[in-house]
Structure formats: C-alpha cells, structure tokens
Nucleic acid binder design. Structure first.
Lengths: 226, 226, 226, 226
DNA sequence: AATGAATGAGAGTTCATTCAT
DNA sequence: TATGAATGAACTCTCATTCAT
C-alpha cells in the first residue's frame, strides 16, 4: 500500500540529489560514441513509454527505435527498469533545480507563487516519458514507491519551509494547519504535472491560464488578504 | 496520452450511472451461493490488487485466495479486467451518491465544504482495491482512460455548479477563474482519495485533520472573507 | 496415416450394419420424453457441427441449443464424440439402404448408373452435420479412421460387385483394371457427397447436372460403347 | 459450409503463385544456421501433423521434436497456423509446376493423360504433413477454405482448358458436359492425392497401377474411342 | 563492443467432464 | 432424472534476459 499521510519530520531526510545517488543507475559511458548510443536509447524509451506505456514497451522496441540491437540495449542497461530509473534521475535533477524552499514570499507573495508555479510546471519536456511509466511502475515496485514518497516528502518540506517563513511574517491565515495544507498542496502539484492544455484551445495560453489558477489557489490557501 | 485539460462543456455528458451502464460487467448471479462466491472473488481481487497491484495479481491468485479453481473464476468473470470493472462500478456508485452539485453554500460555506469533503473522503473502504489497479490500468486501457476523464469531468461539473451558485451570491473572490480553479480542485480531490493517516498517529484523528485542511483549502480558494 | 490403397479382399469384412453395431453408441431411451430430448440434442449437434465445425462446437453449445442443461447432455451421451457417432450411425444406415451391389446393369447400364448416383447423392439431408465433423475428427481419431476405411471398403465392394457383373456380361472395357478403377470411383463418390449447387444457379437443376456428369463419368469409365 | 459447386468463370482468377503471395508467411531467414533451424521445425511439424494430426500436435511438440525451445518456435513462426501455411506454400508450388493446361492431347491422348497423372501424383512426398492437417483446418479456417476453393478452381481451369482443346479437335464424347465433368475430375484428383499403396503390395507397382487406372478413367470420361 | 538467436517461465483463457444438490 | 457450478489439465503466445559468435 502506498502510504500517503503527511510526511513525518523524520521522513524528510536527505535531499533530491541523495535520491539519485541511491538509484541503481548504469554508469555513464565516457566515450562519446557510447554516450550518444545511450542517449538514443533513453530518448527512444521516453517516447515509447509516453506513447505506449511502460509495460507495452518491450526492450526490443526500445532497441529497435534507437537503431541498435537488443544485445546492445542490455550492455547499456542491466534491465528495462534501469532505463526508467535513468529517466527518473533526470526528473529529480529538474525538481532539485526548483529551489522552492528559497522562495522569499515577503514582498510579493502572489507574484512569487505565480513565478514558482510557472517555473515548476514549465519543465514539461523533462517529465516526458515519465508520466505513464511512473503510474504503471509505482504500484508494483516498492523501491519506486519509496522514492515517490521521498520525493514528495522533500517537495513538501520545501513548500513547508517557504510557508513557515510566510507564517513567521504573519502573512498566512491565522488558523492554518500549515503541515496538512502544505501536504495537500504537494499532492495537488503531483497531479498538476499531468495537466495538459485542453484540446481546441491555444495550448500556451490555456496552460498559462491553468497555471495562474493553480498559483492563485495556492496563494489563497496560504496567504490571508492584507 | 491522458488528456487532462479543463473539461469542455461538451465533455460533461451523461451521468455517473451512465458510466456504469456502459461497463462490460458480468451479470450479478441471482442464487445466494453464487453471489457469495462472486463476492468472495471480488473481495480477494480487491485485497490482492491493493497489496500486489493489478499486473502482479494473476487470475489464479484471485481464484486461490477466494478458495475456488481458476475455472470457477472464469465462469464468474470473462477476464481479469472484468473483476476490476466490477470494483470500478462500486466506486462510481459511491461517487454518484455524493451529490456535490446540491451543495447549498449560502448560509455556512465553510461548514458545508467541510461536511462534503468529510463525506467524500470517508468512503475510503470503497476505493479499496482500486487505487493501485486504477493507476496501473489507466495508461494502457483506452476505455478506462475515457472513463477516468468522464468521471473527473462529471465531478468537475458538480464542483463548478456549486461554485457558480456561490459566485451568483457574491461569495467568491472577485477575480476568480472559476473553471480553472474548479478543475484544479477536481485534480486535487482525485489525489486526495489516496490520502492515508500517517503512521504512528491516531488514524481517525489524523485523517480528520487532513480532511479539514483540505476543506479549508477549498474554502479559501473559492470563498472570499466576508 | 490414413491408409487409402485399394482395399484387400480381407478388408472387406462385415457389413455396414456391423459397423453400427461396433460403435460405442448410447442406448436409445425408451421413454418418449427422453427420446425427444435425445433427438433434440442430436439435431442441435448436427446443425452446430455443420455451421461451426466439430471442435468449435462445445458440449455446452449443443445442450443450450437443445434447450437442456449440460448435465442432461452428459446423461444422454457419455461424451461429445458419442453424439458424433450417433450421427455417423444414421449415415451408415442410409448408405446401407443404397444396395449398390444389387445394381443390375445389363439392360440399361447408363440409366441404371444415373439412377443409382441420383439416389446416392440425393440423401443429402442425412449427411447433414457430418461433412465438417467427419473431416475434423478423422485425422485424430484412429477408430474413426478405421470406420472410414471400412465403410469405403464396403462401398468399394459393392461397386466392384456390380462392375464384375457387368464385366461378366462383356459390357466393360476390355483392358479394365476393375479393382483400381472401382477404388477410384469410390474415392470420387466420397468427395462427391460434398458437392453443392454452385451459387447463383438453380440449386436443384445444378445438382442434377453435376449428378448426371458424375454418372456419365462412371458409366464411361466402366462400360464400353456398344 | 464449404461451397463445392462447379467454379464460375469469375472464380478462376489469379494463379497458383498468387495464392502463395497472399499467404501470411514468415520471411525465410537468410542465414544458413537459421534456415536449417526453420527447416527442422517445418520438417518436425510435417511429421507430427502426418502422424498425430494438426490439433493434436502442440507448438511445444514441434519445438521439442526440432530440438529447440518453444520460444524459438515462436520466433520463426507467428503461430502454429503459419507453419501449416509454410507447408501449404510448398504444395502450391508443386501444383504450379504441373502445367496441366499445356497438355497437348492430339497425338496420343491416353499416353499424355497417363504421363500427366503420373507426374501429378508422383509428388507425394511434397504433400507430406498436409493431408491430415488440411482436412482438419479446412472446416474451421475460412481463409483456408477460400484457398482450397481457389486452388481447386485453378486446377479445374487447367483441366478444362486441356479438355476444351481436345473437344475442339473432336476427340471428346459428343454429348459431354465439359464443365461438370472436369469439375468431377478435379474433385477426384483432390482425393487421389491421398492415395497410398495398399499394404502388403509392392508400393511402387501398386501406386503405378492405381495411377494408370485413374488416368484411364479420366481418358475414358473425356475421350471417345476412335 | 555489438549482435540477435535462443531460452523458458509464466500469463490468460478454454472446455470436456464430474458430481453434489 | 435434471441441473449447472466447479474443476483443472492443457494450450497458445509473450518477452525479459542470456550468451555464443
């Protein structure tokens, strides 16, 4: 069972880079030719995972799409899961670059939150290949579930840090359950990364609209009107 | 790819019961003995799906857990997917019973939202067996993805109806993008159904706390302070 | 392997009724109600075998089509094969009624042969349900292959008897290999029972035309022009 | 139901090679080792089909008999049916090599027919593995039934061509229904390919005897005595 | 390093037959 | 005698992974 309660303080350990360090990743090849081949495999996997899902994508499909043999695939990755972990590592790096905790919310809380949401959700291309595979693997890969929990816990911790700073400056609602609210926001973000522009609408404008609504929702959930 | 933009008006068609009607469900056996056996199979499937996930649970596992042979399993369900659909139907029935749209928000918005959230999330046991299976099947079952989209669209429509009523009475924020905000809340609810009490804490109290934070978040996202 | 050489004299033993006697048939029920039920099962089986083939027809299909339960099916027939044998017995009885050997060819050989072919091939309805099932079961049922061989041998013997009578009266070609020719004719007849009217044509007329061509072929293969 | 009326003119389309081209055949491996393995599988299948029939032969049996694993079997053939189609293609190639239509019947009709029958039936080894499988699959494989019909129609067309040439030279019986007679001969040939030498007799001599009787039968069915 | 043929455990599903009611 | 729920052996086919070349 995926435990999804508010993370306890002791669960917020390590950092996003630590998670990458803990992954069973293949070593990055040093030679240029090899690295290109590995990248081609990862790119092919991302596209196929996105289009067909993880299960429906065979190791053979990935190798073929990357223009190499199945044998070569297995010389770069110990197994199919490792390709996925490589994609995961890329995601986590992106998340680590967000620095939500550094959000200084004092001068323009609404603008700051909007900017952060925009930044967070604009990394769409880096989740490419992850969305479907993640939901497919999560339920049956205990390690992955742990990573999921850990990543969410760290994002939660960052949100909580920023929220506490706002609270310290008297910006938040008086009776706010900071922890539970930040956890709810973390869960919402997790879902928000799956947002798509609605078909028919101008994609960029539509996404911007959704991002703004989301940012305002977060703003109002936390910050009281002056 | 699962399209997750704000539902267009024309996507909000039918009703939750319509979705159940569209499912390829086995007929419910009339005889008591048979119904008991079918229920045992469904219960076994739910538990195994919850514990091991959908893929990792074989038809044989379910039959064995229910104390019948594989042949019996296939005489009650055409295939493994049909067991899942049976669980799904149960969920949708629960959702249909929520009547979010009927929420009359005028007198005590905060209390009403709290009550609704409490009611919505208190149905936990009925999602038992669905959480993991749903995320596993979603990416590879186009029909299911359609149902998912449809169900979310209908919940969104209900939230939007209630929110519009509040707006008509001048209760909501002035500059609110109602549609985008309600869609964000719908996505949040979808995630919220996976909430668990945090280990170590008193489960009931902890869930109540998370529910209240969630309800307040929704309240503040929509309703302006008097 | 199905042995299809010209039958040796010692293979021509017994009679068509003997074959029926050797079949593992269920006893015919005495009570009227029971006989009706059995007949309904046989009729349903014939139709399904004809339309779907033997393998594709399940015991359950037959029972359902006959309006009884699978249990009842198995109280009338020990197994699926026994239904087929029942149909077979009906065929063999029909064949036994042909009396080809009695053909007195002296006065009007051509007319006699035509009449016999017409009579032989006109029993179409009695082969109903057999054509597909026979070819399906033959290759995998050694007993059935033996029956096939035996039946063909007996028909061959009858044709040979008639042909020898004609030869004795100097009606046949001088240099005729009676045995081999009659065997070829037997094989041809076996195939001829699968003849259908060609689509588009008047069925009765078309069949009559094919029968006449077949009869003339036999006539010319055996009888020399005066 | 297998329609076995005299082929209509519009049914005689394409050529035997066209039929092979329409089959869903696996590509022939280029590497020697692979081809040998594929041939071993085909040979094993032929023997097992001949001895046990198509249905009774499992994919596993074939793989084991060929000394490879079931996985290897499925890397050479998409399914069991494809092995059969490979055998079928071999047969059709043989039939295409017969050139019955080219039969010039004017100078020595009897000798020509004998030679052709001899040639046609001497290809016995190439039908190995087909006889039982064909009759087993025919009733339940609509595609195969179509091929059967098509192949027979083409053979019929060739026989008819030769017979018409003979008729044009006034060699045939005056009142002959050419079409119906040639169709009967086609059906007879179809059965004749299942001829075996009778046990106990000298195989070669016995087959020659049967072939000669068959050829004479055809000769007399068509050609009038000078 | 690269290939791709080979492996074989394991999945879903069918259906002839049995037997308690 | 009639029922139909229950059985489970058997079958086809997939695909992650290995390893000889």
């Amino acid at each position: 069972m995926v435990p999804s309660g508010i993370p306890r303080a002791d669960e917020i350990t390590g950092s996003l880079p630590d998670i990458i360090a803990g992954l069973d990743l293949p070593r990055v090849p040093q030679q240029d030719r090899s690295r290109q081949k590995r990248d081609a495999l990862v790119a092919a996997a991302a596209q196929l995972f996105e289009e067909c899902g993880y299960e429906a994508t065979t190791a053979d499909d990935i190798a073929t799409a990357a223009g190499v043999s199945i044998g070569t695939f297995y010389s770069y990755f110990r197994n199919k899961r490792q390709v996925f972990l490589t994609l995961l590592a890329r995601c986590v790096e992106t998340l680590a670059a967000l620095h939500i905790a550094d959000l200084d919310i004092r001068t323009d809380p609404r603008g700051d939150i909007r900017a952060t949401v925009h930044q967070a959700m604009g990394r769409d291309e880096l989740f490419y290949g992850m969305r479907r595979a993640w939901t497919e693997l999560l339920p049956r890969d205990p390690d992955l579930a742990r990573y999921d929990r850990q990543i969410n816990a760290l994002i939660y911790a960052q949100i909580l840090t920023a929220a506490r700073r706002a609270a310290a400056h008297g910006l938040t609602h008086a009776d706010l359950d900071l922890e539970a609210t930040c956890w709810a926001l973390t869960l919402l973000l997790d879902r928000a990364w799956q947002l798509q522009p609605r078909p028919g609408a101008d994609p960029a404008a539509d996404l911007a609209r959704q991002q703004q609504a989301l940012a305002d929702l977060i703003y109002r959930a936390l910050i009281r009107e002056a």
